[in-house]
Amino acid sequence: EALDLGTCKAKKKNGEPCTQTVNLRDCEYCQYHVQAQYKKLSAKR
């Protein structure tokens, strides 16, 4: 099993862990959760 392949560390809205696979060398979170957090933070400017 590849060491750099894993699952997203974020949690879904219902509290369950996200099940998307990610490349851990790039980021610990999937694209969906990265974009969601970016939108959330950019709205606070």
Rank of each mutant, 00 (worst) to 15 (best):
C18I: 01
V22E: 06
C27V: 14
A43S: 12
A2H: 14
G6Q: 01
K40Q: 15
H33V: 01
D26Y: 05
Y38P: 14
K12P: 04
T7F: 13
R25Y: 02
K11M: 13
N14L: 01
T21S: 11
H33Q: 00
Y32R: 08
N23M: 14
L24A: 14
K9V: 07
K13G: 14
Q31G: 12
S42Y: 04
K39G: 12
Q31L: 04
T21C: 05
A10V: 04
Y32S: 15
A36S: 09
C30I: 00
S42K: 02
C30H: 03
T7Y: 07
S42Q: 13
C18T: 01
A43M: 04
K9R: 03
P17R: 12
K9L: 05
V22R: 12
D4F: 03
K12V: 10
K40H: 05
G15S: 00
A2P: 07
L3N: 07
G6Y: 04
P17F: 05
C27I: 06
Q20V: 11
S42P: 15
Q35M: 04
G6V: 13
V34I: 03
G6H: 11
C30Y: 00
Q31C: 04
E1M: 02
L3F: 02
Q20T: 14
V22F: 01
R25L: 05
S42A: 11
C30R: 02
Q20Y: 03
C30P: 04
C18W: 01
L3V: 10
A2K: 14
P17Q: 12
L41D: 15
T19R: 13
K13H: 04
Y38E: 08
L24Q: 12
P17I: 04
D26F: 04
H33L: 01
C30E: 02
Q35T: 13
A2F: 05
E16W: 02
A10F: 06
K40V: 09
K9E: 10
A2W: 01
G15P: 00
L24I: 07
K12L: 09
K12S: 11
T21D: 09
G15M: 04
C18H: 00
Q31Y: 04
D26S: 09
C18F: 00
T7M: 13
Q37S: 14
S42G: 12
G6R: 12
A2Y: 03
G15R: 00
Y29F: 09
Q20P: 03
K40E: 11
C27K: 12
T19I: 03
N23T: 13
P17G: 07
T7A: 13
L24F: 09
A43C: 13
L24S: 12
E28Q: 14
K12T: 10
H33K: 03
Q31P: 08
L3P: 01
L24Y: 05
S42V: 10
Y32W: 11
C27R: 05
Y38M: 13
Q37N: 14
H33F: 00
Q31T: 13
L24G: 15
K40S: 12
T21Q: 08
Q37M: 10
T21F: 02
V34F: 07
C8S: 01
K12R: 14
N23P: 05
G6K: 14
A10P: 00
Q31S: 10
G6F: 10
E1L: 00
E16D: 15
E1I: 00
R25A: 11
E28A: 12
C18P: 01
K12C: 00
L5C: 09
C27H: 15
T19G: 13
Q35F: 04
C30G: 02
D26A: 13
Y32A: 15
E16T: 08
R25F: 02
E28P: 15
G6N: 05
C8M: 00
K12F: 06
L41G: 12
A2S: 07
L41I: 09
T7E: 03
Q20G: 12
K11G: 05
D4L: 03
C30N: 02
C8I: 01
Q37P: 14
A36Y: 03
L41S: 13
A36V: 11
C8L: 01
C18G: 01
L5P: 12
P17T: 11
D4M: 10
E1W: 00
T7D: 01
K11S: 08
Q31N: 08
A36Q: 03
K11A: 06
D26N: 14
Q37H: 02
N14E: 03
Q35L: 06
Y38T: 09
T19V: 08
L3M: 13
E1R: 03
K13W: 01
C30S: 02
Q35C: 06
Y38I: 11
A43G: 11
G6E: 12
D4G: 02
P17D: 11
C8F: 00
A36R: 09
K11I: 05
Q37I: 03
D4C: 03
E16R: 05
T7L: 09
T21W: 04
A10I: 03
Q37G: 14
L3T: 03
D4N: 04
Q35W: 02
K12D: 10
P17H: 15
Q20D: 08
Q37A: 10
K40C: 08
G15V: 02
Y29G: 04
E1K: 15
V34K: 13
E16H: 03
V22Y: 02
V34E: 03
N23R: 12
K39F: 04
A43E: 15
T21G: 12
L3Y: 05
Q31V: 07
D26Q: 08
A2N: 10
H33C: 06
C18Q: 03
K39E: 14
A43Y: 15
N14V: 04
G6M: 14
D26G: 11
K40A: 15
L5R: 12
D26H: 12
Y29M: 08
T21H: 11
H33E: 03
Q20N: 11
K9M: 05
V34D: 12
Q35S: 12
E1G: 06
V22H: 05
K39D: 15
A2I: 09
Q31E: 13
R25D: 07
K13E: 07
A36P: 15
K40R: 10
K40F: 04
Q37D: 15
A43N: 00
C8W: 00
K11P: 12
L24W: 05
L5V: 09
T7S: 07
C30Q: 01
Y38D: 15
E28L: 07
V22G: 04
T19E: 08
A2V: 10
K39H: 13
Q31I: 03
A43H: 06
G6D: 10
T7N: 09
H33N: 02
N23E: 13
C18V: 00
Y32I: 06
Y32N: 05
N14A: 07
V34P: 10
L41T: 15
Q37W: 06
G6L: 09
P17E: 11
C18A: 02
V22N: 06
A43F: 02
Q20E: 14
Y29P: 02
L41E: 15
T21P: 13
T7Q: 06
V34S: 12
Y38S: 15
E28H: 07
T7V: 07
A36W: 03
Y32F: 06
L24T: 08
L41H: 10
L41P: 14
Q37Y: 04
Q37F: 03
N23Q: 14
K39V: 06
Y32G: 14
C27F: 04
K9F: 01
K40W: 01
Y32K: 14
C18K: 01
K9C: 06
T7C: 06
E1C: 06
L3G: 11
V34H: 04
L5W: 00
C8Q: 04
T19P: 13
S42C: 07
K40Y: 04
E16M: 12
Q35H: 08
K11H: 08
A43R: 05
A43K: 05
E28F: 04
K39I: 02
R25V: 07
K13S: 08
Q35E: 14
N23D: 14
G15E: 00
K9N: 09
E28W: 03
K12I: 06
T21R: 12
S42T: 07
C8D: 02
L41V: 10
E1Q: 07
L24P: 08
K39S: 13
K12M: 14
T19D: 10
C27P: 04
A36L: 08
T7K: 15
D26V: 13
L41M: 15
C27S: 13
Q31D: 14
K11Y: 04
K13V: 06
Y29E: 07
E16G: 05
Y32M: 01
V22S: 05
D26L: 07
L5A: 09
T19C: 10
G15L: 05
C18S: 01
P17A: 06
Q31M: 04
Q37T: 08
A36D: 11
A36G: 11
L3D: 02
L3I: 13
L5D: 06
